[in-house]
Design a protein around this nucleic acid. Structure first.
Lengths: 129, 129
DNA sequence: CTTAGCCTTCCACTCACAGGAAGGTTATGG
DNA sequence: CCATAACCTTCCTGTGAGTGGAAGGCTAAG
């Protein structure tokens, strides 16, 4: 199967699949004409990565997850630890964004938003609040 | 005042201040020895940027905010529109992260996390769920 | 025979800096 | 007078995770 079909089946852009090959995350066979050729196993791998990325794991974490997936002697504790770390990271980001949202929504609602130049948002950013 | 003190007063690393100068966001005078020299006005500007960045505005949005701040004929509606757009962006990111958190925390709690290789997290990523 | 739609490689760009090398300046201490 | 430390300068490279585009090869259909 050519890269276009692999793209459709995996949900990843062809550019991204080539990039993953560049960084050694996946591989591909080649046909005589130089085209990449994918089998079921690689598609499976690509979908695995697509799902992992969709949960916000970094590409390096995906690499680790893949190697854990392919290691029959892994312990589920290792996988869980990785996922827990990532979950904490997500939690941290949400907290940070929630703080911004809180401040910003206050500022937005305190700004009348008309043709006049007076603006509490700018006043706050300027430190006069 | 030299860049080190400007850094302390603004809360921005010296590297960042030089970068902002590179991209034309701020400026600085120079002493005879080539050192950057900052006055009150530039410090004020740096703090303005620091606060704006802290609320998650992009550097380009900071540039716009600064020019609005310096424009006596601005309308507060323009500022508010910018802030509202940004607020929506933040909301979107929070939603995305919350979705990840939801899925991930379910997966983490369904994984026993011991020495055995069987792992619901990997099973899910592999699409067998 | 040409056109469209695939595919290839390679290079540059994104964003917002951070790290580090190589070297100049200045304050302090002996 | 000299050494040393703590500043400062410019310039180059790297980050993460791709995206965009150029220049060119392959192939099926009309």
């Amino acid at each position: 199967m050519k890269i276009g079909e692999a793209s459709e089946l995996s949900g990843l852009p062809t550019k991204t699949i080539r990039y993953y090959e560049d960084i050694g995350l996946v591989r591909s066979d080649r046909r005589d004409n130089g085209y990449r050729d994918y089998g079921e196993a690689e598609i499976h791998k690509l979908r695995f990565i697509q799902r992992s990325r969709g949960l916000g794991f970094t590409v390096e974490q995906c690499r680790t997850l893949l190697s854990l997936y392919n290691d029959p002697d892994r312990s589920s504790a290792d996988v869980r630890a990785l996922a827990e770390n990532h979950l904490e990271e997500i939690e941290r980001k949400i907290q940070e964004l929630a703080g911004m949202r809180s401040t910003l929504s206050q500022l937005v609602s305190s700004c009348h938003g008309d043709h006049r130049p007076d603006c509490p948002i700018l006043n706050d950013l300027a430190g006069s609040g």
